[in-house]
Design a protein around this nucleic acid. Sequence first.
RNA 1: GAGCCGGUAGCUCAGUCGGUAGAGCAUCUGACUUUUAAUCAGAUGGUCGUGGGUUCGAUCCCCCCCCGGCUCACCA
Length: 500
Amino acid sequence: MKGTNIMEELNDILVQRRAKMEDLRSEGVNPYANDFPVQHTSADIADAHENDDSAVLEGCTAKYVVAGRIMARRDFGKAAFIQIQDRKGRLQVYVGRDNVGEGAFAIFRKLDLGDIVGLSGTPFRTKTGELSLRADSIRLLTKSLQVMPEKWHGLTDVETRYRQRYLDMIVNPGVREIFLKRSRIISLIRNFMVDHDFLEVETPMMQPIAGGATAKPFITHHNTLKMDLFLRIAPELYLKRLVVGGFDRVFEINRNFRNEGISIQHNPEFTMMEFYRAYATYHDLMDFTEELICHVAKEVVGGQVIPYGGKEVDLTAPWDRLTVKEAIVKYGEIEPAVLEDRASALTYAESLGLELDQNIGYGKLLTELFDAVAEPKLWNPTFITEYPTEVSPLSRKNEQHPELVDRFELFMVGRELANAFSELNDPMDQKERFLKQLEEKEAGDEEAHAMDEDYIRALEYGMPPTAGEGIGIDRLVMLLTDSASIRDVILFPQLRPESR
RNA sequence: GAGCCGGUAGCUCAGUCGGUAGAGCAUCUGACUUUUAAUCAGAUGGUCGUGGGUUCGAUCCCCCCCCGGCUCACCA
């Protein structure tokens, strides 16, 4: 039988809800009304009357028209207290038969937790002192056919929270807070950049060559062009083309996609801000980054010492600055000489239990050591400089030490938050670096950088000396919202499809 | 990709040393016009993640698979 009734698959509560909705319809109540002009929020009432005592409110004739979802309900036969939730918070409403009328009250009695109502009323204080609204009218605006999670324990199952984020947002106020903060953080960053005369731009998400970083890309296909495209792993090469074109202070806040593992700090799509500033060096960007993040933290968290993971992070400037080697020496508690030649560094790495290719380059070896020994211990913000040229195909070489590049990464709470360098603008050098990367690709490194001929051509027209940086926005939001997992700061984190 | 842990009512959880399951909240019926997890009386609700095996009998033991979490690997 084709038309198996879906009702048969529903539990009793869901069947009841649907039946109630039909009842309401038959009584002439539209369960999906669309004609209620809301005039106030819960916050308007709180803001206006939080300091009024019951005597003052007794004479108050102000009328408020609000709407929201019923989150709690305490019935007393001919009256009830409900709590409604709107975008600003919760409001207690006293609904009495004598105030709203017998007909409206009879319908109100049939409403469920989760239903959305519109109502009007005047403020008063209850016997226990809670600022509330005494409804003089109430009506159903939207029927909820699903059941709200438990009022006390709420929704804690992480899988359901991520899959049904809407429900998570309804019942977990902390989740709302995080995403309100996320929005605020991004606004603050955007305003800061614009105030410093940066121009916001949008560059391709679908790219014929996935450049600007070393990572495995997602592949997609354009039917009409009959060509594969890559979802971008970074906007870098396009933004630098804009610097060549004369937009010499640009930034972009947008998604990158990397086809790699998922973890507590990695989502396949993540938000990054990249910015480029001509006539600046990576030293300038260290100061700029300090200023930017301190500013955002002050606005969002209220200070420079912020809670994270049960501890505190001190963002007070100036931040520590160490070279890669200094950091390994400091946190590995070794003699500097150990790192001065490849062989002794490799012996040291093996003593730590690192499994490395015997042919690993000296530069790569140093960064492996740094990741193992120093990164997890960098709690307060620290700039790390003097990265090997070998692992930095797009960075400008240091003029005194060409085996190093003018680059820093910023670390906090044991993880990388930003990566910046003085840009390589010598097209010949750039071409050689790309060729070197191609060799590595042929040697089996899937993530080696691809050759981008047009980018070389752009550099040949001349790119002014420029410094550029990428800041991981999700990780910054994690830090400023004291979130342990990147999934807690991404509205819809990537999950496998729900099995049915 | 590997290891460990988990999946029982709408939600939060307990439980069965193998004899087909309980609580609280929610829901339903009734009482109640100032409650704050309201209260009181009664009631309903489950293919115990999926499939297979062992067994007289499996939600429980074994195996495969699915989904999630954490750790590691890769990376930002």
